[in-house]
Design a protein around this nucleic acid. Structure first.
Lengths: 151, 151
DNA sequence: CTTGAAACGGCGAGGGT
DNA sequence: ACCCTCGCCGTTTCAAG
């Protein structure tokens, strides 16, 4: 997978900050014609550099004000480790990271409150046969910042 | 901030999965006219339920293949705790969570490789006067899944 | 990469239930 | 209050140079 350079980086940076930018705006921002920009975006998409577009939502507004990290490790390490697939059906799980260190996976979860968190933890433990260690998020100073692409 | 319900939930779910859906597609998906959907989306945006739109990028393609979690706590807990602001200038930091538990903050960072991670950790320690405990991410089974909004 | 032209979608006005 | 139809205009998209 090749690196991205020059104008493409500017396009990626702009779309990362505002995924709904029109090709017209994008074109005058990078100094090319609309068609040229359109073509570059399509190439970036089919190369997998741009993987898609998503709306940013307020989890508070969706009644999911409680965020937590859940570190998990297998109850029986000799069994096959398929925790991610076993947990994929739980919509409260935002992300699943396989990590080095004491734990096997780190989950980022979003729930309505402590009661739902308790229910979710029990569900995680029984679904994947794992133990959990949970860290509650108190506030989020910032999240999902656009990566630097200009250097 | 009120809860979101019925049709609005469907709109949010659709835009979370594809932030570039046209109002035409959105309209036939939720069974309303284009104008009605457009109006609802604008209300959701100005109520802050929809906070914006962003392109999803491949961090590998951007030469940031190494992800890690960095737990930090102040070297001197008696000093004012302004770590988030002190670290905000570092573009490698994707997210900053204030957490309960042994640590003060949990950072999600993305870098090009171990050498850059080392540099970043030194920068974090000196910028915010903190100690760090780093967990390297080996792989990411899934990330940023759309929240459930249908029930 | 650019121009140019056709098709499409965004977006507001006005009226109806 | 909410929704629909209608029409204008900007945007997307493709063909040709």
């Amino acid at each position: 997978m090749h690196a991205v350079e020059d104008i493409d980086r500017a396009i990626v940076a702009a779309l990362t900050a505002d995924g709904r930018l029109s090709y017209t705006d994008l074109a005058e921002r990078v100094g090319l014609s609309v068609s040229a920009v359109h073509q570059r975006v399509r190439r970036l998409e089919q190369r997998g550099v741009l993987k898609g577009y998503a709306a940013r939502v307020s989890f508070e507004a969706l009644d999911l004000p409680l965020t937590a990290f859940v570190a998990i490790r297998p109850f029986d390490p000799s069994q096959p480790d398929d925790a991610p697939e076993r947990l994929a059906h739980l919509p409260e799980i935002d992300s699943c990271y396989s990590v080095a260190g004491e734990d096997f996976y780190l989950l980022l979860v979003r729930v309505a409150g402590p009661a739902d968190l308790e229910r979710l933890l029990q569900e995680i433990r029984t679904s994947a046969n794992v133990t959990t260690r949970t860290t509650v998020v108190l506030s989020t100073p910032y999240e999902h910042r656009p990566p630097k692409v200009d250097p």
